[in-house]
């Protein structure tokens, strides 16, 4: 579904240049939910924006369904962290959700129907006629998710989607993503700085190093489903994996990209974590 090959990106040039991505390799297969975590400022967002075609990377390649990305791919939607800036305040909730469907060649009635269906999926039918700024933060982010759902992308990117809402709402939204994902069979790449969240939501957790970022580890999450906010988080496997990711993210400051040509050995020795063989560079 998604292939990222040796992706590099540098902002600016000369002495002020900032190398954000130092050669990222990532494969996501159809139907997977992959969480990308990393220290703040490590280039997670740059990675996402490169996949979405919003940033033209300085090196490497992104392929969606085998086709190299140039411009924004047809079949892809993004949920941004800052819902208040990504929803259009001059459009009603319904029109916000229906807007992208123009590209799908639907007529007005069909767009409205699709928007209503997507809003129902996030339990916001009743807010259709309201304006985004009349809703709470969590509700606004649900509108943004509904907009992405209505678009029916095969690949959904989420950039810190729950970073700006309170803890309770956050849990609700995490479960919402798990629910709609099961229902719509989408491939999802979710970027977050929250380690708990990455383990709770993901099928895989990809850990990035500090900028210039490379993949530090790629861990499979083997937790039983359906996941539950309390029970799942109590599982020893969850606790263990969370500690593992945590160690990788902040772990050792001397961690540089050079040390990560191979995945650290302890990730493979852990009984709970299986590194997919195609990702381990020997």
């Amino acid at each position: 579904m998604l292939d990222v090959v040796n992706l590099t990106h540098t902002y600016g040039s000369g002495p002020d240049a900032h190398r954000a991505l130092g050669g990222i390799d990532l494969k996501v297969s159809e139907g997977e939910l992959v969480c990308v975590v990393g220290p703040s400022g490590c280039g997670k967002s740059t990675l996402l924006r490169s996949i979405a075609g919003l940033v033209r990377p300085t090196g490497g390649e992104v392929r969606v369904k085998g086709r190299p990305v140039s411009g924004t791919p047809d079949d892809l939607a993004v949920v941004f962290q800052d819902y208040s800036r990504s929803l259009f305040p001059w459009l009603s909730v319904r029109d916000n959700v229906a807007l992208p469907l123009r590209r799908r060649g639907l007529d007005r009635a069909a767009r409205r129907a699709a928007a209503a269906e997507a809003l129902a999926a996030v339990s916001l039918e009743s807010a259709a006629a309201k304006y985004p700024w009349q809703l709470s933060g969590g509700m606004q982010q649900r509108v943004a998710i509904a907009r992405a759902l209505a678009y029916r992308p095969s690949l959904l990117l989420m950039d810190e989607p729950f970073g700006s809402v309170d803890a309770q709402t956050r849990e609700d939204l995490e479960d919402l993503v798990l629910a709609v994902r099961g229902h719509h069979r989408m491939t999802i790449v979710l970027i977050t700085h929250d380690i708990d969240e990455s383990v709770y939501v993901g099928d895989r957790v990809v850990v990035l190093t500090r900028a210039p970022a490379v993949v530090a580890a790629d861990l499979r999450v083997d937790l039983p489903g359906p996941r539950d906010q309390i029970a799942t988080r109590e599982l020893p496997a969850f606790v263990h994996l969370r500690a593992e990711v945590s160690r990788l993210v902040r772990g050792r400051p001397e961690f540089g990209p050079e040390e990560f040509n191979t995945v650290p050995p302890h990730t493979t020795t852990s009984p709970l974590v299986k590194t997919p063989s195609h990702l381990t560079k020997e």
């Binding site: 924006r49 924004t72 892809l76 941004f80 259009f88 807007l99 590209r103 907009r147």
Partner: peptide, 9 residues
């Protein structure tokens, strides 16, 4: 603008 681009306007 980015949202509009992502959704293919």
């Amino acid at each position: 603008i980015e949202t509009a681009r992502v959704f293919g306007l």
